[in-house]
Computed example of a mutant assay.
Amino acid sequence: MNFFELLLPDFSLILCGYLLCRHSALNRQVWDQVDRLVYYFLFPVLLFHSIIKHPLDWQAARPLMGAGLCMAAAGIALAYSLPRWPLLGNRIERRLHAAGAQVAFRFNSFIALALIDRVAGPAGLPLLALLIGLLVPVFNIGAVLPMARHAGGRLSRELARNPLILATASGLCANLLGLQLPDGLTPTLTRIGQASIALGLLAAGAGMQLGAMREGKALSLALLTLKHLGLPLLALLMALLWQLPELPTRVLLMFAAVPTATSCYVLAARMGYNGAYVAGLVTVSTLLGMLSLPLALGLLVHW
């Protein structure tokens, strides 16, 4: 299977979003509203619907949850440890590291949800939703801790109000209770899901910025290498250790290899750090995803 050709249509939408934002009347102000629409309504509906319509085998899902948590913990630990690495540590400015460490382990849920059907089919979406619900709080805490001096106690409120976590949690509860949605709602919910994928990819492209990356070149290289090489290798290692079947392995590898979250630079700027530097990292990560995703998924050829 040629994974690059498989993913090219979705990355083409990212490019379209970038070009529309920079070279048309659909400027940054328009895409800020699209971001909110996708994040607060379209993607939560997609997550909830995907979970409730596919009953989960919880016994079978436990190894994937364990592998995902171990991968997340290892990725966060590696990102935190960079200032202590020989030859690298004395070249890292601590405030830049505090702001940028999150880039090495967070993920772009827009791109992940858009790609999952192509990569793993309909059965992969509930597994991805489970990983999102499980790991979004872990990664958000990991992102904030290095910048904790400016956190001001807002983390717990943000997690409690995160629409992706709320949609996943409510969908899982409904799944456990065996609840079903009326058949008449299915066409509407399906169309909302389709709209969320296209708009999410366009918004991801519109959010790319070539920020101030002249400083912290060694740190940038280390963080992006961890994100696009280290994390997929960790995912493969955890899949082996937890003896995951082919489908959960595919989902975990894709999850690890997608670009970092576009909200990284928003969080850094809001907490008083160098948002422009982090925006540059996010942009390069989005571009690198075009290489890391096909390479990571190509590992399954020899699975």
Rank of each mutant, 00 (worst) to 15 (best):
L6S: 12
L37K: 03
L20R: 02
I52P: 00
T186A: 14
L127C: 05
V30S: 13
I116W: 03
A206V: 12
L13N: 00
D10V: 04
P63N: 06
P245Y: 06
A129M: 09
F110M: 05
I141D: 08
L159G: 00
L46T: 07
P44M: 03
A195E: 02
V119D: 02
R62D: 07
N140Y: 10
L234Y: 09
G200Y: 01
I132D: 06
T260I: 14
R157G: 05
Q209M: 08
P137K: 07
L181P: 12
L181K: 07
A129I: 00
T286I: 08
P187I: 04
T283G: 08
L240I: 08
A169Y: 02
I132M: 14
L15S: 06
W85G: 12
L295S: 08
N90P: 13
G200P: 13
S196K: 08
F48G: 05
N90G: 13
L202E: 02
A218S: 14
V266K: 09
Q33D: 04
S81I: 03
F41A: 15
L219Q: 03
F41R: 02
P245N: 04
A204K: 10
D35F: 10
Q59G: 08
A77Q: 10
I141R: 12
A148C: 11
L233E: 14
F41G: 14
S50F: 04
V266M: 05
S285K: 00
L172D: 08
T190G: 15
S24V: 13
A25T: 14
T283Q: 04
I52T: 15
D57C: 03
N175E: 13
S50A: 11
L19E: 11
H302C: 09
P245V: 10
C16R: 09
L69C: 07
G171E: 03
L231F: 09
L46D: 11
F255Q: 08
Q29N: 13
S50D: 15
A212D: 14
A99G: 13
A123M: 15
S109P: 15
G124F: 00
N2Q: 06
A77E: 06
V144G: 03
P187N: 04
P259Q: 05
M238C: 14
N175V: 09
A169D: 11
M71H: 03
Q180G: 15
A77Y: 08
V282W: 01
L229M: 10
E93W: 01
I14F: 02
L42P: 15
G89P: 11
M1K: 12
P245T: 07
A61P: 09
T249C: 05
I165Y: 03
N162D: 09
V258F: 07
L87R: 12
L299I: 09
L287S: 11
P146K: 08
N175W: 03
E246T: 10
D57T: 07
Y80P: 00
Y80T: 01
A169E: 12
R149E: 15
L199E: 07
L233D: 10
V278L: 12
L221N: 06
M213Q: 15
L201G: 05
G200A: 04
L13H: 02
L199S: 04
